[in-house]
Design a protein around this nucleic acid. Structure first.
Length: 300
RNA sequence: GGCGUCGUAGCUCAGUAGGUAGAGCAGAGGACUGAAAAUCCUUGUGUCACUGGUUCGAUCCCAGUCGAUGCCA
């Protein structure tokens, strides 16, 4: 039986390092489940693995896309499952590491079959939303998919917009797609979570931002300024510095915002991962215990 | 040294014609099905600097003390 080992945890906790150590110990390769490290243009700001780290263990889905590419969870699921199929021919275990909860969950548990976004349709809905406000989206969704509207988060424009988009695109209410459940995999999954004292983690985050600046974050972001409206750049570390380069805030302020937003992001990740009862949690130094746990799960 | 201003939630500050106080930010908790590092929801009790006085009652008025700051010497 093949095993996929997932390593989850909040940003800056040390997932990259742990994944490399685990993969080396198991003699295998690593998949990323980090929705921003996919983009080759984003390096320093998303704390992508360094060249030295990449040389230690083969990595996949690091910098394999351009910020100009359209990508989403579903495509990731397909890409990752395809890759796993070939990797499992050579390895009994493969490591996947990342902080994008939705991507990790989709890889492990699948996702409903839904159409990709129709960019033109999405843009036109978005335009009306910007003109008429969220009430417009609510009214439309209420008509198009009353079932979804019942339980929807009607304060969240993105959710409403998506429901509208899918329903208009297919002629079938969005809620009907969501009922579809997914496939079983021919591998099993061992889930590892990394955790750390909140205060320590927050200090690490603050320090890492300063380190990113030393590594040349400002230059990286400045070069991406023309692309600031791309979704891939709606990212902590970039959007705050765009504001600085546009003269809206001081550099000091922008960096402070990055730290704050990264802390909040970390908190959101913790909230996401906490609800997954299959995850076994470890401290950042418990490499030995993690390997023992992986081994004991394999022998079950 | 003299005169003035200020001292209220972790931070920046409101406020109470005297009936023990509230915003923004930070922080905390939560949600999450093709934009997910995204997007959204909920959440504010603190010796109102300290010590006395006046008062039925003081964070608010008065005096003193301490601290900050400005101007004058």
């Amino acid at each position: 039986m093949k095993t996929l080992i997932t390593i989850a945890g909040p940003t800056a906790i040390g997932k990259t390092k742990m994944a490399i150590e685990v993969a080396q110990a198991l003699g295998t390769e690593i998949l990323s489940a980090d929705s921003r490290q996919f983009y080759k243009e984003l390096k320093i700001g998303v704390a992508a693995p360094s060249n030295e780290e990449l040389a230690q263990v083969p990595h996949h889905f690091i910098g394999h896309l351009s910020i100009h590419d359209y990508y989403n969870v579903s495509r990731y699921e397909i890409d990752a499952l395809n890759l796993l199929e070939s990797l499992f021919q050579r390895y009994n275990q493969v490591v996947v590491v990342g902080g994008s909860g939705l991507y990790l969950d989709t890889l492990c548990g699948g996702i409903s079959e839904l159409p990709d976004a129709d960019e033109a349709l999405r843009a036109s809905i978005k335009e009306k939303f910007e003109q008429s406000g969220i009430e417009y989206l609510r009214e439309q969704v209420k008509i198009l998919d009353p079932v979804f509207y019942e339980t929807a988060d009607i304060s969240n424009p993105m959710r409403l917009l998506r429901a509208m988009e899918v329903t208009l695109q297919t002629g079938i209410p969005y809620s009907q797609f969501k009922n579809k459940k997914q496939q079983r995999h021919n591998f099993r999954i061992t889930k590892i979570g990394l955790e750390q004292d909140r205060e320590v983690l927050y200090n690490r985050i603050n320090q890492r931002v300063d380190l990113m600046v030393e590594m040349g974050l400002l230059e990286e972001v400045q070069n991406l300024l023309p692309n600031k409206n791309l979704n891939a750049l709606n990212t902590v570390g970039y959007k705050e510095l765009f504001e600085y380069f546009e003269g809206k805030v001081t550099l000091e302020h922008a960096l402070e915002n990055i730290k704050t937003h990264t802390r909040r992001y970390a908190k959101r990740q913790m909230t996401w991962f906490k609800r997954d009862s299959d995850i076994q949690w470890f401290g950042t130094e418990q490499k030995i215990q993690i390997l023992q746990y992986i081994n004991s799960e394999d022998n079950k």
